[in-house]
Nucleic acid binder design. Structure first.
Lengths: 109, 109
DNA sequence: CATTTGCATATCCAATGGGATATATGTCTA
DNA sequence: TAGACATATATCCCATTGGATATGCAAATG
């Protein structure tokens, strides 16, 4: 798998993804959303794009980027193997306050 | 938040966490599970421990490590904000409607 | 005791990679 | 077409860091 966690390790890249959470954004908008120079933003966007984490659509001279879910899903799936480390071991009260458990998350009979 | 993704970015650390998924393990067991030297394993374990991602229990001269869910949960929660990018049932129209115009996006000064 | 075992720490080294500046490429507009 | 605008690429710099080797230290072993 493409090393998703390495991509997410960089705060600047997470900032970019955060700025893309509500839909596609142009490079200039992303420069405004972060505190980076435009070339740095383009550099990180390129890394995200080559890794398949964002996609690009040209509109005039603007390049509109948007999030692609696939890579992020892989990360989420990897983490799901550890869910029981924060689902179990909680008190009954804590468990009650948790969100509804996923179907496959029951303890073994 | 402790930079969870930076911790997970290192494959060797993910290997260690993988080896801890079924319960606590001694350092020697972890050395066997990875292909690293013992000092390297200890080094990465220390990083994970200081960050609160694993905990340590001494048993004789053995040090038994185990996963602590809290940090991993934070990562999972961060990713949950992107779930809709890989949830099915999101039509192209829905995606187009996600783009909300930002107030400060003007064309000319 | 001395020795072995299990693990931690110290230190060095080379590679990685993020950010900035300068510049190139492409597109719109007057 | 000139020039402004939007973005990409090139290049340099240097702080970070993973891994190895050598060593320190505590607990078991006899």
């Amino acid at each position: 798998m493409v090393d998703v966690f390495r991509l997410l390790a960089e705060p600047s890249r997470r900032q970019l993804l955060d700025a893309l959470r509500n839909g596609e954004r142009s490079v200039n908008e992303l420069v405004g959303a972060t505190h980076m120079s435009q070339p740095s933003v383009s550099k990180q966007l390129r890394i995200l794009r080559v890794s398949g984490m964002v996609s690009l659509r040209a509109s005039g001279r603007q390049h509109l980027y948007s999030v692609r879910g696939r890579s992020l899903r892989e990360a989420s799936e990897w983490l799901s193997y550890y869910e029981h480390f924060w689902q179990e071991g909680l008190s009954r009260m804590d468990k009650a306050l948790q969100r509804e458990p996923k179907p496959g998350t029951r303890r073994k009979p």
